[in-house]
Nucleic acid binder design. Structure first.
Lengths: 210, 210
DNA sequence: TAGATTGTTAATCGATTAACAATC
DNA sequence: TAGATTGTTAATCGATTAACAATC
């Protein structure tokens, strides 16, 4: 696999390619050219070919791309050909929503445990997964080989909890708290800032109205 | 206000500026230079000045930026100085999480109603907001002057529901369904694709491990 | 072989960074 | 006035698009 750095712009597009390829498989399409795909996805064929060729030559001249093959190759690139053990910290609605979302499991993300500090929530069960006390998290992370922690907690406690899960051995944090987490470089942090998304929507709405 | 198109890269950064300015206000800071802010936010001072000057000269030579003033100007740019009436379609965990998230209301996004097709959920109350039957949505949108609809529903029904809310007069859709919505250009669509975010995390995790 | 379409190089476009004159 | 820092122009860098030779 190539050593040169892939831009985030490319990485952001990969899951979308993956989704479209999935739909093509479902509708029984066996091969597709960059041109046909470009029309469906509303991006240029050139961009599709450039993006894919960052990772290898998955197509064939005169033929195009084999849908199933390309789909499986992108899965490998994204690392979703392997299982990932995940925990959720924060058993509120958002944490429960993620725990309940079975499509993640289909992509190899298995929720092994949910944690909270609220004694009212501890002991509860979400989709068969027990809500445990946050104190028991470090031991659980080690025992169950957890590599991803989703933080669905208020921003006030996010920094501390992030430090704790990192110390326990978690390798990636999916952060829903509205704050930037400063952690050592060997922990991956992926942010989902819902309020920022809503503000972008608001901006575009305001421009339209003008 | 300027007529030239602002790039999405700039728009994506605005909410983050806003958040940092909010924190500065909370900690009693009255003015800040692009240089100080650049250190806190880990972006270049040049970028901050360029971004802001897309919208106007909010600073003063030799002084910097007045934190409160800049904060309020960005609020205006983002359109969050005005109230937005919002509905949520889909009363599952994710819909409930959004309804319960009071911070949105602080930014002027007021959840007026929640809709679902599941009769078990209809009649329920979330944060004092009644869950109504989706059939009653069009009339509600008109009566309550709704301009934003959050779609927290499965992708199978997303396209139809999106068309319905647009027909009812909703001006912007905050889409959580894992599909691209094709709608007329006068409806703003902002996507939150959680599974794509998780795959990006997975990609970065896989690269780290290699 | 001819036609189609990739992989890849080159050209263009846009975004970021650097530099500095304007000015508070 | 001198110092600081913006607003803005110019330079650089990177990403996207176009073009086409390679090849199935």
């Amino acid at each position: 696999m190539n050593e040169r750095e892939i831009s985030t712009a490319v990485i952001r597009r990969l899951p979308r390619y993956y989704r479209y390829l999935e739909e093509l498989i479902d509708s029984g399409v066996e091969r597709i050219s960059s041109n046909e795909l470009s029309e469906r996805m509303k991006v240029t064929a050139s961009q599709i070919r450039q993006d894919l060729n960052n990772f290898g030559g998955f197509g064939q001249q005169g033929y195009g791309y084999n849908v199933k093959y390309l789909h499986s190759e992108i899965a490998k690139i994204l690392g979703i050909d392997k299982k990932h053990n995940m925990i959720i910290i924060g058993a509120g609605n958002l944490g429960q929503a993620i725990a309940n979302y079975s499509a993640f499991e289909k992509r190899g993300f298995v929720v092994k445990g949910i944690f909270d500090i609220n004694p009212k929530l501890v002991g509860m069960t979400v989709r068969g997964i027990e809500v445990m006390n946050l104190e028991d998290m470090p031991e659980f992370v080690k025992r169950e080989n957890i590599d991803i922690a989703a933080l669905t907690i208020p921003k006030t406690s996010a920094a501390d909890v992030a430090a704790d899960v990192a110390a326990a051995g978690v390798k990636a944090i999916w952060n829903f708290a509205h704050t930037d987490l400063a952690l050592s470089d060997d922990v991956v942090v992926e942010n989902v800032h819902l309020s920022e998304s809503l503000m972008q929507l608001s901006y575009r709405l305001a421009r339209k109205e003008k």
